[in-house]
Design a protein around this nucleic acid. Structure first.
Lengths: 140, 140
DNA sequence: ATTTGTGCAAATCGTTTGCATCTGA
DNA sequence: TCAGATGCAAACGATTTGCACAAAT
């Protein structure tokens, strides 16, 4: 079959990451990268894969998400209580976290970057900066 | 017994929080608030309590930390991989997270407050802002 | 006396791992 | 061929919960 076209982008990204383009990884990369910026949990992606008739185990979803993260194709976002999200947006940015809906939204210009931050102690360097603005529904 | 003096501050804080000054809570509050700003995990506090001959179960440590957090006496800090930290510093501030040592350090004046941040969508309000600067040892 | 807190152990949840089996280059 | 990938189920670690007992008002 000519899945070639549909998965071209996914295939290329996997290649760039040095990961074998297996059926599972192609499918997952397609779900992740062929529909604009996304915030997904492993659970959510796994269930999406199921709906798309892609047979993958949850363990493999976790593996793949981590491999893509390590390859710099995803960002990991850690939240209180909720499970870990993976973000396809690679630009430096922050997040609104809607705690009532457990949903994430990018904050384009969080006004916080290395320039506002004190230098870290000698012998260390900044690895990443996470800005999470937790937001809740206004209670009347 | 005259634990009164030693625990005066802890007692007062618990009262303010509307929590019964039980032996466990007094002891934990004492450990938390009577030695300057601290960053502790539930595990760490539990083991500290043990060393201080305060008999408390881990479950009670968790309960107490959450109650104090709810009362606004502690801030919760969520980190990737590691367990949750509780911070006695109530001023708005960020954190350096030394990932190699799993240690936290306050980032004093990062110029981070609601004023730099975009307003959240209508019907929602900012509940908290977390700035975590992950720092790693420089590898040569 | 009543309410609230505590300890324990079992349960839960997200995530990881071990290992036998498959699959892509 | 055969290193690398996958699936399953069991293991995990942090946290929570249910419930009988104990302590504070």
């Amino acid at each position: 079959m000519e899945i070639t076209e549909t998965y071209a982008r996914a295939h290329e990204l996997l290649k760039k990451a040095g990961l074998r383009p297996t059926r599972q990884r192609l499918g997952l990369a397609h779900l992740l990268f062929d529909q604009g910026n996304r915030h997904v949990t492993a659970e959510a992606l796994h269930s999406e894969a199921g709906k798309a008739s892609l047979s993958v185990s949850l363990a493999t979803v976790y593996n793949t998400l981590h491999q893509l993260t390590e390859a710099g194709l995803l960002n990991q976002v850690n939240l209180e209580g909720a499970s870990t999200y993976f973000d396809t947006n690679l630009e430096p940015h922050g997040h609104f976290y809607f705690i009532d809906r457990q949903q994430l939204m990018d904050v384009p210009a969080p006004g916080i970057d290395k320039s506002v931050l004190p230098a870290p102690p000698d012998g260390t360097e900044i690895s990443r900066v996470d800005v999470i603005v937790t937001v809740r529904d206004v209670r009347k």
